[in-house]
Write a protein that binds this DNA or RNA. Structure first.
Lengths: 142, 142
DNA sequence: ATACTTGCAAATGATTTGCCAGTGT
DNA sequence: ACACTGGCAAATCATTTGCAAGTAT
């Protein structure tokens, strides 16, 4: 995973038995260009001119296909549409602030304590890559 | 908060300057009858015959009004529609299992460790009453 | 050649909103 | 009385799906 160029991503995709169609490359290009998780709508719109626009329905279909292939991940934002990113293996989960709307990735070390406490107190294994921990971030909290 | 009879709930509502209309009582009755958080659709349908059915649009409006008044709370389920409950002060958050779909309330003691770890590791104050912690529960995890 | 994909449009599910008639206090 | 509400239908937002035409391998 964690391709950093379109060529690498295309190789990834083909290695998974999928075709590297124009529309598919477009989605990958947009996800590579984005520095944060983005919505299907944003991908289809072309990230405000930074990438080429394309059909929204196809974008949804490709995001889904790429996710099944393990190349893409999607996360449920507290408000608004789902957000998509390339699957990167140094991320373990996301944190989202209800106040400012920020969505940021957290690595394994940062989340370890939370995971442990959750397991100990409730027997749950957090699914933070798909469902961010929602709360109020340090800067929003006075 | 935490009314346990329609009469008490009606008093609550009036104390907040709202009218105790028939449709409003209906919503409260349904929430009192439900032993778990329920969707607006379920409330409008009458909890499969246990309460009287009513207009879905009005249910949404009333749930919203009652939430602003502090009588009701709604939480974002990982999949499907939002779920509503009466605001009870012994609850501190919810846990939801992605596998079996169970949504259960957790009290302050259960969540204390998670809250602390989250604050320490990321500076976040969890908003678990509105956004449940999502993961895989003990029974679903082999 | 042929199975995989696309683009477009219509369908779906959840929720909101406009509007005018009805009702609680 | 009069502002607050209700019911109903149409609108909106996010996402899915059907289908005929196009294309990667």
């Amino acid at each position: 995973m964690t391709s950093t160029t379109i060529d690498a991503a295309v190789r990834e995709v083909r290695a998974r038995g999928l075709r590297a169609s124009a529309a598919r490359r477009l989605v990958l290009t947009a996800l590579l260009a984005a520095d944060q998780p983005v919505s299907a709508e944003e991908v289809a719109s072309g990230l405000r001119g930074r990438t080429a626009p394309s059909d929204l329905g196809s974008v949804y279909r490709n995001l889904d296909t790429l996710e099944r292939a393990g190349v893409v991940r999607h996360l449920h934002a507290p408000h608004g549409p789902s957000l998509y990113t390339l699957a990167r293996d140094n991320e373990a989960g996301y944190l989202s602030c209800v106040r400012c709307g920020e969505m940021r990735a957290a690595d394994r070390a940062t989340l370890a304590g939370v995971r442990a406490a959750l397991r100990d107190s409730a027997g749950y294994e957090g699914a933070f890559l798909s469902f961010p921990i929602v709360g109020v971030c340090g800067t929003c909290r006075p």
